[in-house]
Amino acid sequence: MAKDSQTVIDEVFCKVLEKQAFLFPDKTPAAELPPQSGNMLCADITFFGTEGKGKINFYAPEIMCQELAANFLGIEPDSEEAASKAPDALKEMLNMVCGNFLTDFAGETAVFDLTVPGVAPISKEEWSAVLTRPDALCYCADDYAIVCVLVMQE
Protein backbone atom coordinates (compact mmCIF):
# COMPACT_ATOMS: atom_id res chain seq x y z
CA MET A 1 0.00 0.00 0.00
CA ALA A 2 2.21 2.79 -1.28
CA LYS A 3 -0.32 5.63 -1.15
CA ASP A 4 -0.67 7.79 1.94
CA SER A 5 -4.05 7.00 3.51
CA GLN A 6 -4.68 10.59 4.66
CA THR A 7 -4.09 11.95 1.14
CA VAL A 8 -6.41 9.35 -0.39
CA ILE A 9 -9.24 9.87 2.13
CA ASP A 10 -8.99 13.63 1.57
CA GLU A 11 -9.33 13.20 -2.21
CA VAL A 12 -12.19 10.70 -1.95
CA PHE A 13 -14.08 12.71 0.68
CA CYS A 14 -14.08 15.83 -1.52
CA LYS A 15 -14.94 13.86 -4.68
CA VAL A 16 -17.95 12.09 -3.14
CA LEU A 17 -19.29 15.22 -1.46
CA GLU A 18 -19.07 17.15 -4.71
CA LYS A 19 -20.51 14.42 -6.93
CA GLN A 20 -23.32 13.17 -4.71
CA ALA A 21 -24.22 16.12 -2.49
CA PHE A 22 -23.17 19.15 -4.56
CA LEU A 23 -21.19 20.45 -1.58
CA PHE A 24 -17.68 21.77 -2.20
CA PRO A 25 -15.53 21.35 0.91
CA ASP A 26 -12.40 23.45 1.50
CA LYS A 27 -9.73 22.00 3.74
CA THR A 28 -9.52 24.38 6.71
CA PRO A 29 -7.39 24.39 9.88
CA ALA A 30 -9.50 23.42 12.91
CA ALA A 31 -8.91 26.81 14.55
CA GLU A 32 -10.36 28.59 11.50
CA LEU A 33 -13.58 26.58 11.22
CA PRO A 34 -16.77 28.63 11.60
CA PRO A 35 -18.46 28.13 15.00
CA GLN A 36 -21.33 25.65 14.83
CA SER A 37 -24.65 25.99 16.61
CA GLY A 38 -27.28 23.27 16.88
CA ASN A 39 -26.91 19.51 17.11
CA MET A 40 -23.81 17.73 15.87
CA LEU A 41 -23.81 14.17 14.52
CA CYS A 42 -21.11 11.53 14.31
CA ALA A 43 -21.23 8.65 11.82
CA ASP A 44 -18.83 5.71 11.96
CA ILE A 45 -17.86 2.71 9.86
CA THR A 46 -15.25 0.00 10.38
CA PHE A 47 -13.50 -2.10 7.75
CA PHE A 48 -11.45 -5.30 7.88
CA GLY A 49 -9.44 -6.90 5.09
CA THR A 50 -6.28 -8.61 4.01
CA GLU A 51 -4.67 -5.20 3.45
CA GLY A 52 -5.45 -3.88 6.91
CA LYS A 53 -8.28 -2.68 9.10
CA GLY A 54 -9.51 0.68 10.24
CA LYS A 55 -12.29 3.04 11.12
CA ILE A 56 -13.65 6.24 9.60
CA ASN A 57 -15.69 8.83 11.50
CA PHE A 58 -17.55 11.82 10.06
CA TYR A 59 -18.59 14.68 12.31
CA ALA A 60 -21.06 17.25 10.95
CA PRO A 61 -23.86 19.59 12.04
CA GLU A 62 -27.32 18.03 11.75
CA ILE A 63 -28.50 21.00 9.70
CA MET A 64 -25.79 20.24 7.10
CA CYS A 65 -26.89 16.60 7.01
CA GLN A 66 -30.41 17.87 6.30
CA GLU A 67 -29.00 19.78 3.32
CA LEU A 68 -27.11 16.64 2.32
CA ALA A 69 -30.37 14.66 2.32
CA ALA A 70 -32.11 17.42 0.36
CA ASN A 71 -29.34 17.49 -2.26
CA PHE A 72 -29.37 13.69 -2.56
CA LEU A 73 -33.13 13.75 -3.14
CA GLY A 74 -33.58 17.01 -4.99
CA ILE A 75 -35.99 18.39 -2.39
CA GLU A 76 -36.16 21.52 -0.21
CA PRO A 77 -33.63 21.52 2.68
CA ASP A 78 -36.23 22.79 5.16
CA SER A 79 -38.73 20.03 4.27
CA GLU A 80 -39.83 17.39 6.78
CA GLU A 81 -38.48 14.65 4.53
CA ALA A 82 -34.99 16.20 4.47
CA ALA A 83 -35.05 16.57 8.27
CA SER A 84 -36.11 12.96 8.82
CA LYS A 85 -33.44 11.60 6.46
CA ALA A 86 -30.55 13.78 7.72
CA PRO A 87 -28.82 11.13 9.89
CA ASP A 88 -29.26 8.45 7.21
CA ALA A 89 -27.78 10.78 4.57
CA LEU A 90 -24.61 11.20 6.66
CA LYS A 91 -24.34 7.41 7.08
CA GLU A 92 -24.76 6.83 3.36
CA MET A 93 -22.16 9.44 2.49
CA LEU A 94 -19.72 7.75 4.87
CA ASN A 95 -20.52 4.38 3.31
CA MET A 96 -19.73 5.77 -0.16
CA VAL A 97 -16.51 7.45 1.00
CA CYS A 98 -15.35 4.28 2.75
CA GLY A 99 -15.99 1.99 -0.24
CA ASN A 100 -14.28 4.35 -2.67
CA PHE A 101 -11.39 5.02 -0.28
CA LEU A 102 -10.59 1.31 0.09
CA THR A 103 -10.34 0.77 -3.68
CA ASP A 104 -8.29 3.91 -4.26
CA PHE A 105 -6.00 3.11 -1.35
CA ALA A 106 -5.55 -0.66 -1.49
CA GLY A 107 -6.28 -1.38 -5.16
CA GLU A 108 -9.17 -2.96 -7.04
CA THR A 109 -8.38 -6.57 -6.18
CA ALA A 110 -8.21 -6.05 -2.40
CA VAL A 111 -11.16 -7.42 -0.44
CA PHE A 112 -12.60 -5.73 2.65
CA ASP A 113 -15.62 -6.36 4.84
CA LEU A 114 -17.44 -3.24 6.00
CA THR A 115 -19.70 -2.85 8.99
CA VAL A 116 -23.08 -1.21 8.53
CA PRO A 117 -22.51 2.50 9.31
CA GLY A 118 -23.89 3.94 12.54
CA VAL A 119 -24.81 7.50 13.50
CA ALA A 120 -25.38 9.25 16.83
CA PRO A 121 -25.55 12.79 18.22
CA ILE A 122 -22.46 14.12 20.01
CA SER A 123 -22.07 16.75 22.73
CA LYS A 124 -20.37 20.14 22.34
CA GLU A 125 -17.50 18.76 24.44
CA GLU A 126 -17.03 15.79 22.11
CA TRP A 127 -17.06 18.13 19.10
CA SER A 128 -14.43 20.37 20.74
CA ALA A 129 -12.29 17.30 21.53
CA VAL A 130 -12.43 16.10 17.91
CA LEU A 131 -11.09 19.44 16.72
CA THR A 132 -7.92 18.96 18.80
CA ARG A 133 -7.08 15.60 17.25
CA PRO A 134 -3.90 15.77 15.13
CA ASP A 135 -5.36 13.27 12.63
CA ALA A 136 -8.63 15.21 12.12
CA LEU A 137 -9.18 16.38 8.55
CA CYS A 138 -11.24 19.56 8.84
CA TYR A 139 -13.33 21.11 6.08
CA CYS A 140 -15.62 24.04 5.56
CA ALA A 141 -18.53 23.80 3.09
CA ASP A 142 -21.17 26.55 2.88
CA ASP A 143 -20.21 27.74 6.39
CA TYR A 144 -20.66 24.25 7.81
CA ALA A 145 -17.76 22.58 9.62
CA ILE A 146 -17.16 18.92 8.76
CA VAL A 147 -14.48 16.66 10.21
CA CYS A 148 -13.25 13.31 8.90
CA VAL A 149 -11.04 11.04 11.01
CA LEU A 150 -9.43 7.93 9.56
CA VAL A 151 -7.60 5.50 11.82
CA MET A 152 -5.82 2.56 10.19
CA GLN A 153 -4.02 -0.50 11.51
CA GLU A 154 -2.08 -2.60 9.00
Binding site: M96, C98, G99, N100, L102, E108, T109, A110, V111
Partner: peptide, 9 residues
Protein backbone atom coordinates in the same frame (compact mmCIF):
# COMPACT_ATOMS: atom_id res chain seq x y z
CA UNK B 1 -25.70 -1.02 -6.76
CA UNK B 2 -22.99 -0.65 -4.14
CA UNK B 3 -19.93 1.18 -2.84
CA UNK B 4 -18.03 -2.12 -3.20
CA UNK B 5 -15.19 -1.62 -5.67
CA UNK B 6 -13.27 -4.86 -5.34
CA UNK B 7 -13.04 -6.54 -8.75
CA UNK B 8 -12.44 -9.81 -6.91
CA UNK B 9 -15.87 -9.56 -5.26
Amino acid sequence: VTTEGSTTR
